[in-house]
């Protein structure tokens, strides 16, 4: 029987050989792999996965609050049978939480790399600058979408068990899927603004404040315009702030009874939102074309 303490004379077991440096001539994967790796890394960063508990607190706090809201709504519906909040209203009611989420995660994705000086290391590798910017945006959009879409799906699943008959489930699905799209619109518009601001500020805390500021900055304009004694001004007021801009799209597309009075300007809201996103992406790309080249 061989025991651990039995001396093995024939061969030196357990000796670690320093095999020296080994050159690598295996595959070096291309652009898609780099983009995919960075995307996964960024998505994990967004939720603080693979990092300390400190990085997890804030994103998961918001995820928790949103989850509780969804759970309560489902429970209320189960008890009373009343729909307290439609699927499409869900992201609107939570818009302040979406802003907070973007203000926490956006700087985590963009400002952190600026502050720690990692950015030059990325750009000293075969990663395209535009890819970096777009991947970070995609990660923030996905994180925000997931933060909202998962609770929304839970609500739908709950409802699907509650309603009677397959026809009613189809009706639910008819409400749920457009709402999911509406959540995506929220995620895209909010993320573009948040990431653009975050990419300009090196310090995370400052960036978080700046993002919240950027969302709230123009809300007085909306308030003033909407009380003007002029119908078109009232109906166009929502264009002035990203929050009401997205709300206007909701009124135009998914909601039967809009909470904003947008009149006939629905398509304009859509157009402005598209212009806002495109402009934001172009600015983001311009920002990353120059940064860290000093």
């Amino acid at each position: 029987m061989t025991t651990l303490d039995a001396p093995q004379t024939d061969r030196p077991a357990g000796v670690i050989h320093d095999i020296g440096y080994q050159r690598y001539d295996g595959p070096r994967l291309g652009r898609r792999y780099l983009v995919g790796s960075l995307y996964l890394h960024s998505l994990r960063t967004a939720f603080g996965l693979g990092r300390t508990i400190k990085a997890k607190i804030f994103p998961w706090l918001i995820v928790g609050v949103v989850g509780v809201v969804a759970a309560v709504l489902t429970a209320v519906r189960a008890q009373t049978g009343e729909v307290a909040l439609s699927y499409a209203e869900f992201p609107e009611v939570l818009s302040i939480l979406i802003i907070f989420f973007c203000a926490i995660v956006g700087p985590e994705l963009a400002s952190r790399d600026l502050h720690s000086g990692v950015l030059p290391l990325y750009f000293a590798r075969p990663l395209h600058r535009a890819d970096y910017a777009l991947v970070k945006l995609a990660a923030l959009v996905s994180a925000t979408f997931l933060m909202l879409a998962v609770p929304l799906t839970v609500m739908f699943a709950g409802a699907a068990f509650m309603v009677d008959g397959i026809g009613a489930v189809w009706d639910e699905l008819g409400d749920f899927l457009p709402a999911l799209g509406y959540v995506a619109v929220h995620a895209i518009v909010y993320s573009v603004l948040a990431l653009l601001v975050a990419s300009l500020v090196r310090r995370r805390a400052v960036a978080a404040g700046a993002i919240v500021g950027a969302f709230l900055l123009t809300s007085p304009v909306v308030a003033v315009l909407s009380v003007m004694p002029h119908e078109a001004a009232n109906q166009l007021a929502g264009l002035a702030s990203p929050v009401t801009l997205v709300g206007g799209i909701g009124d135009w597309t998914v909601e039967e009874v809009g909470d904003l009075d947008i009149g006939p300007y629905g398509p304009l809201y859509g157009l402005v939102a598209v212009g806002f996103v495109v402009a934001g992406i172009l600015l983001l790309l311009a920002r990353y074309r120059k940064v860290a080249a000093r």
């Binding site: 690598y24 295996g26 595959p27 070096r28 994967l29 291309g30 792999y33 780099l34 790796s37 960075l38 890394h41 693979g50 990092r51 300390t52 400190k54 990085a55 952190r112 790399d113 720690s116 990692v118 290391l121 990325y122 590798r125 075969p126 990663l127």
Partner: peptide, 19 residues
């Protein structure tokens, strides 16, 4: 980045070089 371990960070950078 101060909040990553060296092993994780260098692994990530290796992947960013296509490994």
């Amino acid at each position: 980045p101060p909040d990553l371990s060296a092993a994780e960070f260098v692994t990530h950078m290796a992947r960013m070089s296509g490994l």
